[in-house]
C-alpha cells in the first residue's frame, strides 16, 4: 500500500486514468448499443477492437511511414489509418452479426447460445491473427507482441503551472478524439431519423416493427456503429501504446464491458462516465498496490456495482429520452 505515491502525483495519475478511460469508453459504446437493441452481450466485440489495431499497422506498413515523418505525411497517414481501422472494425462486427447471431435469431435460440457463438467467434478471430495468418503470411502475425511505428510522435505542448502536469499532443488527441466521437454518436442517435429507429427498437422491438422500423436493418446499423467506434479506439490505443497483439482484445473488452455496466448498459452517456471512472480507478489502484492488481480492480468494481446498483450510475436507457 503506497498512498504517498498516489497523492504526490494525483494530478498526473488522474490524467493517465482519463486517457486510459477514453479508450475504454469508446469500446464500451459497442457493448452498450448492441445490448440496448438486442439485450445481448456481444462477446466478440473485444476482437472487433483488436482487428482495428491491425488495420492501423497495415496502413502504416503499406504507406511505409515511420517515426519522424513530416507533418503533412503524419496527418495524412493517421487519418487514413483511422478510416481503415473504422472500416475493418465495422466490417468485422457486421460479419460476426451475420455469422454468429442472425442464424440463431431465426431459430429463436435462448440467450445462452448467443453468448457461446460470440465466444466462438472471439476465439476464431484471435486465432486468425495468432495462427492462420502466421501460417499464410508469416511475420508480423503470430503469438507475439508487434510494435507499431509511432508515426504520431509524442511532443510536449505546454505544462500547467501549479500542477505537475505536462500536456502532450497524443493525450490531447486521445481525449478530445474520444469525446468528439462520442458526442457525434450521441447526436446521431438522438437527432437523426436512423437514430430514432435505433431508439424505437431498443424501447420495444415489436411495436417498432409495427411502426415500420426495419429491425434487422437497425441491428446491422448498431453493429456497424459500435464497430466503427471500436476502430477509433483502436487507433487511439496504438497512438498511446504503439503495440498490438493477437490477444489484446480480451482484457480491454472485459474492462470496456465493466465500464458499460458501471455507467448503465444501454446508455451512451453512461459509457463515457463509466469508462473515465474505471480508467481513473484503475490507475489509482495500480499506484497504491501494483500494476498486477489493476485487472482485478475492474472485476471488483463490476461486482460491487452489480450488487448495489445493477442498472449502473446513469441507468439503462438506450430507448429512453435521455440516451
Amino acid at each position: 500500500m503506497d498512498f504517498d505515491a498516489l497523492f504526490s502525483g494525483l494530478d498526473r495519475h488522474t490524467l493517465d486514468g482519463i486517457t486510459r478511460g477514453s479508450i475504454y469508453a469508446l469500446v464500451a459504446l459497442g457493448y452498450t448499443m448492441v445490448y440496448g437493441v438486442m439485450k445481448l452481450i456481444n462477446f466478440a466485440h473485444s476482437e472487433v477492437f483488436m482487428v482495428g489495431t491491425w488495420a492501423v499497422l497495415g496502413v502504416y506498413t503499406a504507406l511505409g511511414v515511420s517515426a519522424g515523418a513530416g507533418l503533412a505525411v503524419v496527418i495524412g497517414a493517421t487519418l487514413l489509418a483511422l478510416l481503415a481501422a473504422m472500416l475493418a472494425s465495422a466490417g468485422t462486427a457486421l460479419a460476426v452479426e451475420r455469422i454468429a447471431y442472425r442464424p440463431l435469431r431465426k431459430k429463436g435460440a435462448p440467450p445462452l447460445i448467443f453468448l457461446i457463438t460470440g465466444i466462438g467467434c472471439s476465439i476464431v478471430l484471435v486465432e486468425i491473427f495468432g495462427q492462420v495468418f502466421k501460417v499464410f503470411f508469416g511475420a508480423p502475425f503470430g503469438r507475439v507482441t508487434v510494435n507499431i511505428p509511432s508515426v504520431l510522435q509524442t511532443k510536449e505542448l505546454f505544462t500547467i503551472p501549479g500542477l505537475d502536469l505536462t500536456i502532450t499532443n497524443t493525450r490531447v488527441i486521445i481525449i478530445v478524439g474520444a469525446i468528439v466521437m462520442m458526442l457525434a454518436l450521441d447526436t446521431f442517435v438522438n437527432k437523426s431519423r436512423l437514430g430514432r429507429g435505433v431508439r424505437a427498437v431498443a424501447q420495444d422491438p415489436d411495436t417498432a416493427s409495427l411502426m415500420g422500423v426495419n429491425r434487422e436493418r437497425v441491428i446491422m446499423l448498431v453493429f456497424i456503429l459500435g464497430g466503427a467506434m471500436a476502430g477509433v479506439a483502436a487507433l487511439l490505443y496504438t497512438i498511446q501504446y504503439d503495440i498490438t497483439k493477437f490477444d489484446i482484445g480480451f482484457i480491454i473488452g472485459l474492462k470496456a464491458f465493466t465500464a458499460a455496466v458501471l455507467g448503465g448498459i444501454g446508455n451512451l452517456r453512461g459509457a463515457l462516465v463509466g469508462g473515465l471512472l474505471l480508467g481513473i480507478a484503475e490507475v489509482y489502484a495500480s499506484t497504491i498496490w501494483s500494476s498486477e492488481w489493476a485487472n482485478v480492480t475492474a472485476f471488483v468494481v463490476l461486482v460491487v456495482i452489480l450488487m448495489f446498483r445493477p442498472t449502473g450510475l446513469l441507468g439503462e436507457s438506450l430507448g429512453k429520452a435521455r440516451a
Binding site: I99, A100, P103, L104, K107, A109, P110, I113, I116, T117, I119, G120, C121, S122, I123, V124, V126, E127, I128, G130, Q131, V132
Partner: peptide, 17 residues
C-alpha cells in the same frame, strides 16, 4: 487446436443449438 475449437463452437451451435 484453438482455431478448430472456435470454429467447432460456432458451427455446432448454429446447426444444433
Amino acid at each position: 487446436r484453438p482455431f478448430a475449437f472456435g470454429v467447432a463452437l460456432v458451427v455446432v451451435m448454429i446447426l444444433r443449438p
